[in-house]
C-alpha cells in the first residue's frame, strides 16, 4: 500500500480540498449519524417532532390568513401554499442555525483531532435535510388529501427548490460558522437575522402580491424567495417568475463562494481560537 505523504507548511494558498473531504467521507457519515441519533434521544415523540412543528405553524397561519385576513394565493389552497413554504424555510433556517453553531459546539474535537473542518457544518446541514425529508412526505400526503396533487414538473422543480435552499443555507451557514469561532456575537445576532429573513421570504404570502416591482426584485435578493418560487411551481398552473429565480441564483451562488472562501481561509486557526 502506498503510504500517504503529508506536507505541513504555514498556510498560504487557498484550495477547496474536495479530494480530502472525499477521503474523510466515513467521518462525515458518523458525524451526521451522531447528530440525528442524539437529536431525538430522550424524547417521547422522537422523529414526530419533525412533523409537528411545521404542521402546527401551518394551522396557525391557515387560521390567520385564510379566514381572518385572507391572502390571495391564486389557485393554490392556503394550507398547501403555506406548508410548502414552511418546509423549505425550515430546511434553510435550521441548516443555517445548526451549521452556524456547529464549530463552537464541536470545539473540543477541533482542538484535539485533525480532519477537514468543512465536515462539521456540512453534517449539521444534513441533519436539517433529514428532518426536511420527513416533513416532505407529510406535505405530499397533504397535497393529495386537499386534492391538489403536484404536476409532473415536480420531478424538476422540487429538487431545484431543495438544492437552492441548501446552497443558500450552506453559504450563510459556513460564513456564520467561521465568524462564530472568532466573534461570539454572531450567536446572538443569528436568531434575529433569521426572523428578518423569514418575513422577507414568500413563506406566508406570495411574492407576486408585492405591487412595486422594484421592491419585489429587491426582496428576490433573498435567495429563499427563488427557492420557494421553484418549489411551489408544480402546485399551480403558473410557471415560476424567472427573474426572481435568476436574481436568487446569483445571490445564492455569491453567498456560497464568500462563505466557502472565508471558511477555508480561517479554518487553519480554528483550533487556536475556539
Amino acid at each position: 500500500m502506498e503510504k500517504p505523504v503529508i506536507h505541513i507548511k504555514p498556510p498560504s494558498r487557498l484550495s477547496l480540498g474536495f479530494k480530502e473531504l472525499w477521503q474523510y467521507r466515513e467521518l462525515f457519515y458518523f458525524f451526521t449519524w451522531r447528530d440525528i441519533k442524539v437529536k431525538y434521544k430522550q424524547t417521547y415523540l422522537g422523529v414526530l417532532w419533525a412533523l409537528l412543528q411545521p404542521l402546527g405553524m401551518m394551522l396557525i397561519f391557515t387560521f390567520l390568513f385564510s379566514k381572518t385576513w385572507p391572502i390571495n394565493t391564486g389557485d393554490i389552497k392556503y394550507p398547501v401554499f403555506v406548508l410548502s413554504g414552511l418546509i423549505c424555510w425550515n430546511l434553510f433556517s435550521s441548516s443555517v442555525s445548526h451549521a452556524g453553531d456547529s464549530m463552537v459546539q464541536n470545539a473540543n474535537i477541533i482542538k484535539k483531532i485533525y480532519f477537514p473542518r468543512l465536515i462539521i457544518p456540512c453534517s449539521a446541514m444534513l441533519v436539517a435535510l433529514f428532518d426536511f425529508l420527513i416533513a416532505f412526505m407529510i406535505f405530499i400526503i397533504l397535497c393529495f388529501v386537499l386534492q391538489q396533487p403536484p404536476s409532473w414538473t415536480a420531478i424538476l422543480y422540487f429538487p431545484a427548490g431543495i438544492v437552492m435552499s441548501l446552497l443558500s443555507a450552506a453559504g450563510l451557514g459556513l460564513l456564520l460558522a467561521a465568524l462564530n469561532v472568532k466573534f461570539r456575537d454572531f450567536r446572538y445576532a443569528l436568531p434575529f437575522l433569521l426572523q428578518v429573513l423569514f418575513f422577507a421570504s414568500q413563506v406566508i404570502y406570495p411574492l407576486q402580491s408585492v405591487q412595486q416591482s422594484l421592491f419585489k426584485y429587491l426582496l428576490a435578493i433573498n435567495p429563499m424567495n427563488a427557492a420557494i418560487e421553484l418549489f411551489r411551481a408544480p402546485l399551480s398552473n403558473i410557471s415560476p417568475d424567472m427573474t426572481i429565480v435568476a436574481i436568487g441564483t446569483c445571490s445564492s451562488v455569491s453567498l456560497l463562494i464568500i462563505g466557502l472562501l472565508y471558511f477555508r481561509k480561517t479554518e487553519a486557526y480554528f483550533a487556536d481560537l475556539a
Partner: peptide
Amino acid sequence: SRITPPTTGEAIIRG
C-alpha cells in the same frame, strides 16, 4: 497532527 498550522518551517510526514 495538523490541528494548528506552523508559522515557519515545514514538516513532512510519511504514513
